[in-house]
Design a protein around this nucleic acid. Structure first.
Length: 382
DNA sequence: ATTCCACTGGAATTATAGGATG
DNA sequence: CATCCTATAATTCCAGTGGAAT
C-alpha cells in the first residue's frame, strides 16, 4: 500500500485546513466593513481615471490590514475590468524586498519588464519603471496603486528614498501598511509634504469579534460537531489578550485540531487549546533562535551563562563573557548594543538603562524574558 | 553646575555578489 | 576573459548625549 494513501485514510477532524491559514482571503471580512469602505472611498478615484490619494493603514499584527487591502484590491480590479480600465494594484511585502532598488526592480518585473537584481544603477531601474507609464500598451493611461506592506521595515533599513521616487512618479498611488503609528519619524520633510496622506486605523479585535471570525472559518475547515463548545471562545479569549491578534487565534484553532488528530481523538477538547498555546510559543522561540546569525547566538549563549550564575547582567559584563565565548572571532563593543536591541525587539530579553553617576556612567541591565529550559532546547538544536 | 563614563547615532569602511564593458 | 561599477549588508570608528554622584 502506498504510504500517502495510508496516511490519507487516517481519521481527521479537518475538512480542509487551508481556510485556517491567515493568508487565505475569505469572501467577507467580519467586523472590517468600515475599514474596507474607507479604503474603497479613496481608491474609487481610479475608476474615474484619476490617481487616488496616498493612504496609510495602521494597526497591530493580526488586525486584518493586509486582508482588507487585498480584499479591496480584488473588488477594485473587478470593477476596473468591467469598465475596461487599465488599473493595477501591486502588492509588495517590504520584508521580502528591503531596499528602494529591490522594490522598484520587483515592480518592473511584475509589470513584465526584465530587470536584473543587481548590476544596474538605481537611476537606470527608476528610469525603466517610469517608462512603464509612457508606452501604455493598451492605449489607456495606466493607474498603479502600490501596496507597501510592513513599510516600517524598509524605512528603517533604507530610508525614505523609495517614497521620494514614488511620490514623484505620476499615476502612482501609495498605500502603506504599518504596524507602528510612529513610522513617519523616518520620513524626511521633503517627502512628507508630498505624501498627502489619508490615515486609516485598524483597532484590535475584541474577543466576541474573534469568535465571529473563527466560527466562520471553522465551519469551512472542520467536520461537523468535532469542536467542543468552548474551544472557539477559548481561542478567541487567548488571542484577545494578545492584542486582538486574529492570526494567532487562527493558529491556535488549527494547532488544536492538529493535536486532536495526533491523539486520534474525534473531538477537539478545550485542553488541546491550552496545549496548542504552549506548542506555538515553543515553536516561536525555537524558530527565532535558529534563524539568528551566529554572532547573536553567541550573545544569547553568554546571556544564558550569566543568567544561570544569577549575576546581574550589564552590557559591559556581557561583552566580557561574549569575548570568551567567541574566542578570536568577536565583534566590536558597539555592535553588541545593536544585538541587544534586536534581541529586545524579538522579545527574548528586556533592558533598562540606569545611570550610576559620576565616574560610573550609564549601563544597561538585561533580563532574559523566556524560560531558560526553552532557550537551552532551542540553542541545542540550532 | 560639573564630570565622567557607558550608551548612541551616523558616517566611513570592508566584504561580497553580480552586471556592464571592452 | 579581465576590469570596472553598483548595490547591499555587516561592522568599525568616532563624535556626541544623558544623568546621577560629586
Amino acid at each position: 500500500m502506498n504510504i500517502f494513501e495510508e496516511l490519507g485514510e487516517k481519521n481527521t477532524v479537518f475538512k480542509c485546513k487551508k481556510f485556517l491559514d491567515h493568508r487565505f482571503l475569505p469572501d467577507k471580512l467580519p467586523h472590517r466593513e468600515e475599514q474596507i469602505r474607507s479604503v474603497a472611498k479613496y481608491w474609487i478615484e481610479a475608476l474615474n481615471s484619476v490617481t487616488p490619494p496616498d493612504i496609510t493603514i495602521y494597526g497591530k499584527t493580526g488586525t486584518g490590514k493586509t486582508a482588507v487591502a487585498k480584499f479591496t484590491k480584488k473588488q477594485l480590479l473587478q470593477m476596473a475590468k468591467d469598465k475596461n480600465l487599465n488599473v493595477r494594484v501591486e502588492y509588495v511585502r517590504c520584508t521580502d524586498y528591503t531596499t528602494e532598488y529591490q522594490v522598484i526592480a520587483h515592480l518592473c518585473q511584475q509589470m513584465g519588464q526584465n530587470v536584473p537584481y543587481r548590476g544596474w544603477t538605481k537611476a537606470e531601474v527608476i528610469q525603466s519603471f517610469r517608462n512603464l507609464f509612457k508606452k501604455n500598451v493598451f492605449g489607456k493611461d495606466l493607474i498603479l496603486i502600490i501596496l507597501l506592506d510592513e513599510i516600517d521595515i524598509l524605512l528603517k533599513n533604507d530610508g525614505d528614498g523609495l517614497l521620494y521616487t514614488l511620490t514623484r512618479t505620476e499615476n502612482v498611488a501609495i498605500a502603506s501598511i504599518s504596524n507602528y503609528v510612529d513610522f513617519k519619524k523616518f520620513i524626511k520633510p521633503r517627502v512628507k509634504s508630498s505624501l498627502r496622506d489619508r490615515e486609516i486605523v485598524f483597532p484590535p479585535y475584541n474577543a466576541q469579534q474573534l469568535v465571529d471570525i473563527l466560527e466562520e472559518r471553522a465551519a469551512l475547515s472542520f467536520r461537523d460537531n468535532v469542536l467542543n463548545d468552548d474551544v472557539i471562545p477559548l481561542c478567541a479569549a487567548l488571542a484577545a489578550k494578545e492584542e486582538g491578534d486574529a492570526r494567532y487565534a487562527l493558529d491556535l484553532l488549527r494547532t488544536s485540531g492538529e493535536l486532536a488528530d495526533e491523539k486520534c481523538s474525534d473531538i477537539v477538547f478545550e485542553d488541546y487549546v491550552r496545549e496548542a498555546k504552549d506548542h506555538i510559543e515553543h515553536n516561536k522561540v525555537t524558530d527565532i533562535i535558529m534563524t539568528l546569525p551566529s554572532q547573536q547566538q553567541k550573545v544569547l549563549e553568554s546571556l544564558l551563562y550569566l543568567t544561570k550564575r544569577k549575576e546581574e547582567i550589564t552590557s559591559g559584563r556581557l561583552y566580557e563573557v561574549y569575548k570568551e565565548v567567541s574566542k578570536g572571532d568577536s565583534v566590536s563593543y558597539r555592535r553588541i548594543f545593536d544585538f541587544i536591541n534586536e534581541l529586545e525587539m524579538l522579545g527574548l530579553i528586556s533592558t533598562k538603562t540606569i545611570s550610576r553617576g559620576r565616574g560610573r556612567g550609564r549601563t544597561n541591565i538585561i533580563d532574559l524574558q523566556c524560560e531558560i529550559s526553552l532557550l537551552e532546547d532551542a540553542m541545542w538544536s540550532a
